[in-house]
Amino acid sequence: MYKYQSSKNSGAKSWILQRITGLALVVLMLGHYILMHYSPDSGHTYEAVLTRMQFSWYRIIDLLFVTLAMYHGLNGLWGIFRDYKLAPWLRISIISVLVILGVAFTAWAYNIIFSIPYVHNIALLL
């Protein structure tokens, strides 16, 4: 009955990835919220950001965070569209828009993170 309607992709991989990235994001998001708000300066001044970014681990965590969030969000958005019976051209168009948006915004975020300089004399900041 489904011979002509289904694809080989059952969606199981996207389902399991959605759960794994979701659980990782719970931890990352809570940490991010506390870190950015425990003092009024921590999330809103250039010095605070610059100081954090001297530690490469922060950059790595931020890169991971934005990648996971973008994947989880766009995959979730695609999940909403998948609930409706869409014409193939519409389905391909929507996937294309989501992928382009995801790649563009992730690249933008990477660019922002990498643009923050390493300072030579770290003692001046700390």
């Binding site: 001044t45 250039y46 010095e47 950001v49 934005v66 969030a69 973008m70 969000g73 766009l74 979730g76 958005l77 909403i80 948006l101 915004f105 933008w108 975020a109 660019n111 922002i112 643009s115 923050i116």
Partner: peptide, 27 residues
């Protein structure tokens, strides 16, 4: 909430983009 958070993520990347232009622009 998922839709709102997705919208916020885009907005968040946009609003932090001034980090590339230094302290004055960012603050």
């Amino acid at each position: 909430t998922g839709l709102a958070l997705m919208g916020y993520l885009f907005l968040h990347i946009y609003s932090l983009s001034t980090l590339t232009s230094g302290k004055e622009a960012f603050e």
